[in-house]
Design a protein around this nucleic acid. Structure first.
Lengths: 208, 208
DNA sequence: CGGCAGGTTGACTTTCATCAAGGAGTGTGG
DNA sequence: CCACACTCCTTGATGAAAGTCAACCTGCCG
């Protein structure tokens, strides 16, 4: 089963795949952070998803990708060639079941983000983003903790492109949340959330 | 194979399933239009997708849905109970392959929409929406035609909720496009596109 | 030290939302 | 048949949120 896998590492900033390009592998992220994004001719960019360790990329049954995949940090992937992977898929209903599940998870995530992009205010977007990172970076148990320190996996520019904002607005909203004592900023990437419940109330989502 | 299917019809306006609810069936749309949507406590809602004839709904492997499904017009579904459908899935790699493909299609569609919601102007959103309906309602061959008449499957309010706008903005942008001769309005739902290429240029997407 | 990338802040503008009023089409009941 | 009520849509006036442009800070590295 696992005899067909191999590892590959990309340096920070490198393009892993481009919109429209053939992608002959499927892979899962071992370490590092990558983004899925699409860019319009005039340069406007929207990040469609973050790839953090354990996330899956690639599309069994598809030759091409419809977006760019870029390494934000050094990224190590655990790769499989598409063909043998698909063959394996045919023989292993268990695996294809798992794959459907993952695709549906991604679909849910994409749709959550649609609500955020279409209907949330800048402040709600920022709060939602922090909560998202917080959930991803804590083991599930820790989430109940009163005060948490997290490191954003991305810089201001990527936050802006993920949230459908400009970097100025991101910066301003972060300062506003800081001023109100909802978060503390620590260097460029660090954020301390003294009261998770209080921050959660700013996301606009159900149940503080 | 098809012995487990049955048909069900919902009147216009009726809720087919609610956010968080158990959904014991999977189904495909035979006729009519339904929406997937999510609503925030304060009433802001975002439509996450349209279900037009031939579209699939429900989630093998999932007990619940994470959004509301509402019939916009009278809707007829071709339903399968989830359990036997899943069992069938296990035995039919062909079917599960098809299902992965459909999930990935939906994922691509959701991500297209993320770009629209996050980065496009009101005018581009409206143009994109019209092009979307146009592509869906024409047989693929017809798309090249010079002048096309389409019927929007949804009212202004749903357009607004789909595009992340208000209905006033939707209305204004439609009048603007009309004034510039890019479209003609015919009653509440009808739109005539005299020059598809010209309209396509307004979407902000690649290749006019 | 200087230069550079990433981040913040300020002044101003644009876009879209909000509030409010007024058609247009349709169905109902007097 | 006409008033009316109702729903859906349009239009106008105004305001607020976020974008743009520009300057400046901060930390980092050669």
């Amino acid at each position: 089963l696992n005899r067909i896998k191999f590892y590959k590492t990309y340096p920070a900033g490198q393009t892993i795949a481009s919109d429209g390009e053939n992608l002959e592998i499927v892979a899962s992220v071992v370490s590092g952070t990558a983004t899925l994004s699409r860019t319009m001719e005039d340069g406007r960019t929207q990040i469609l998803g973050l790839l953090l360790p354990s996330d899956f990329m690639g599309r069994p049954g598809r030759k091409t990708v419809a977006y760019d995949i870029t390494a934000l940090t050094d990224v190590t992937l655990c790769c499989f060639f598409r063909k043998p992977f698909e063959a394996l898929l045919q023989k292993t209903p268990h695996l294809s079941e798992r794959l459907i599940e993952m695709a549906l998870d991604e679909l849910d995530a994409a749709r959550d983000w649609m609500l955020l992009l279409g209907r949330k205010s800048a402040r709600e977007k920022i709060a939602s983003m922090i909560m998202f990172v917080l959930r991803r970076s804590c083991k599930s148990g820790e989430v109940a903790a009163e005060s948490v320190h997290i490191n954003l996996p991305i810089a201001r520019e990527e936050m802006a492109n993920y949230l459908g904002l400009t970097i100025e607005t991101v910066s301003r909203q972060l300062t506003a949340l800081k001023t109100e004592g909802l978060i503390e900023l620590e260097g460029k990437r660090g954020i301390i959330v003294p009261d998770i419940t209080a921050l959660a109330k700013e996301t606009g989502d159900d149940l503080g």
